[in-house]
Each structure stands twice: as structure tokens, then as C-alpha cells.
Design a protein around this nucleic acid. Structure first.
Length: 303
DNA sequence: GTCATTTGACCTAT
DNA sequence: ATAGGTCAAATGAC
């Protein structure tokens, strides 16, 4: 299994390298790079199937509820189980939204995919690249050009089901509102360190109408805080839920196999889109600024 | 006492 | 006018 993980992370590394050199990439060279990336994930996929005796990844999707990740700007795409989400959170310490070059790469893959791939979800809106504005304006509308990333995240099925999975950032709830046409209210969170570090990161959490066990989590803005904290996500309302526990209590598989398989499948194995690595492994990207991911023993509030 | 959550009011975009 | 997003006082937990 570690070998598969290694292959997949190597694939991500290749994607990152491609991303950074994209502007000056010749078409031939680009094609070679894409082939290499596709082969890496394809190999990982095949290896997974061998290791887990998997014949048809579709059946896995019926066994474990995935997490969908989408970009509000570019209508995309990813489906990952909660434990995988935790994995990349922990590796990257945060998330970032697409903009600029990454968005271009993404669109290229959208074209390759033809838009007919399975496991796709369409994110709301079509807002452009984020402005990162921290203008203290009340009641600003959701599609005002600020960057936005949408996740569909499986809720816990036992314990406190009101909590979305931990995302390695600390949030303070500042509002809740009934939304027209929605059975469930939308909760508004901002970064715990908003005041102290003027961190503009925010997120909204809302249950889906047709699936109360799935949260739609919308992230806006980037973390600019450079502090770690211990408070649990979305909630000081409950004790910190260990990552593994969160995954286990969802009733979903805690085995990386199916998750990685599907990830690879989605991206490359079955016409997936896949170049949106910045949604999934945004780390090492100097243009992104998430530094306030959680660390076990540091308490830092803003009040 | 400190800090997070709740919730009604307010502000702004549509 | 309405809906979505935010503020801030009240409240509760620790």
C-alpha cells in the first residue's frame, strides 16, 4: 500500500512540476509530461487493483461515500473520501483555490475529459479569480469575485453529526441563516485568527437538501495567519475529533485503497480530469498562503 | 474571566 | 422587496 501511496504522491509532484513550468512549456514537452503523469496514476491505479483485488472501482463507490471537491470558479471535480481528505490536509496544512495558471490547466483537462466523466459535480457559480479582498463590507454577495472552493463532505453518521470533517484549520462560527429552498440552515465560519492576523479565510457549511449526511462546504479567501491552533474545526462545540476517528465514524471505509483508486480513476483511469492538483495538494505553492493549519498543542484565539 | 456559539438585526447586492 | 452575508449583544461552557 505504501508503494501505491508513493506512486500517487509522485504523480502529484509531477503535476506540480508541470504546473510551475507550464507557461514556457512546448506542446511536445507538455504532452510528454502529461503522459508521464497519466502513466504514474494509471500505474498506481493498476497496482491498487492488484493489491486489493479490485475489479471494478464503481462498486467501491457504492460502498463508501465519497467526498466531492469542486471549484466555484471552474466547475470541477474531485471525489475523495473523508480519510483521504484528512490525508492531504495533514500533508499540506490547508487548501487553496485555483487561479491563473492552475485554472488554465484545469480547463485543458476539462476539454480532454469532454465533460462526460463520471463522478463529476458542478460547482455553483462561475466567479473569476479571487481578489482576496478583505474589505470590511457587510452583506457582500457570494459571487462578488472572491475566490471560492466548494467541497461536498460526508457528515459523521454517529456522534455529533453536525460537524463536518476536520480540515486542519480552526474556525469560529459567526452566523447561521436559513437559506431559501434549503431544508437546512447555512452556517458561517471565519478563521479563528481573523482579528489577530487579519486572516480573511471563511467557510460556509450547509447540508444538502437531498442528503442530510453530506455537507456542502464552501471556502473563501486564503489563510494569511501564521499561527497554529488546537481548536477543533467548525466547532469548539465538540472535542477535537481525531482524524482517524472522524473517518471511522462516518461509516465509510478507512482503507486508503478504494479512495486512492477512485482518485486515480477519476483523474486518469476513466477519462478523468485531474490537473487540479492545487485543489487537492496545494502545498509547496508559494503563491498560496495557508499557514495556520492546526498543530496539537498551541491554543490561540482572537479574543 | 475568557472565549465560542446563538440569534435577531442590519447591510448590501440583485 | 428580497435573500444572503455579517455584526454584535446575549448566553453558555470551561
Amino acid at each position: 500500500m505504501e508503494e501505491v501511496m508513493s506512486m500517487i504522491f509522485h504523480g502529484f509532484k509531477l503535476v506540480k512540476e508541470l504546473e510551475s513550468s507550464l507557461p514556457e512549456k512546448a506542446p511536445e514537452s507538455l504532452s510528454v509530461s502529461l503522459d508521464e503523469i497519466a502513466k504514474t496514476f494509471g500505474d498506481a491505479n493498476e497496482r491498487l487493483k492488484i493489491v486489493h483485488g479490485i475489479k471494478n472501482s464503481e462498486t467501491l463507490l457504492n460502498q463508501s461515500k465519497p467526498v466531492m471537491i469542486a471549484s466555484g470558479s471552474d466547475q470541477m471535480l474531485m471525489q475523495i473520501e473523508p480519510d483521504m481528505m484528512q490525508e492531504y490536509w495533514s500533508r499540506c496544512g490547508g487548501f487553496a483555490s485555483s487561479q491563473g495558471t492552475e485554472a488554465k490547466i484545469q480547463r485543458q483537462f476539462m476539454a480532454v475529459d469532454g465533460g462526460g466523466g463520471r463522478n463529476l459535480t458542478v460547482a455553483e457559480g462561475s466567479s473569476g479569480a479571487g481578489s482576496g479582498s478583505s474589505t470590511p463590507m457587510k452583506g457582500r454577495r457570494k459571487d462578488d469575485g472572491e475566490e471560492k472552493t466548494v467541497f461536498l463532505v460526508a457528515a459523521l453518521r454517529t456522534g455529533n453529526t453536525d460537524l463536518p470533517p476536520d480540515d486542519n484549520h480552526t474556525w469560529r462560527k459567526y452566523g447561521q441563516k436559513e437559506i431559501l429552498g434549503s431544508r437546512f440552515p447555512r452556517a458561517y465560519y471565519r478563521c479563528t485568527h481573523q482579528k489577530l492576523y487579519n486572516c480573511p479565510a471563511k467557510k460556509q457549511v450547509q447540508r444538502l437538501n437531498d442528503d442530510p449526511f453530506t455537507f456542502r462546504v464552501t471556502y473563501r479567501g486564503s489563510h494569511t495567519c501564521h499561527i497554529y491552533s488546537t481548536a477543533p474545526t467548525a466547532s469548539a462545540a465538540a472535542p477535537t475529533v481525531p482524524i482517524s476517528y472522524a473517518a471511522a465514524t462516518t461509516g465509510h471505509s478507512v482503507d486508503y485503497g478504494p479512495a486512492l483508486l477512485d482518485m486515480a480513476d477519476t483523474m486518469f483511469g476513466s477519462g478523468g480530469i485531474g490537473a487540479n492538483m492545487d485543489f487537492i495538494f496545494p502545498c509547496n505553492d508559494p503563491s498560496q498562503d495557508h499557514h495556520c493549519s492546526r498543530r496539537p498543542d498551541d491554543g490561540e484565539g482572537d479574543q
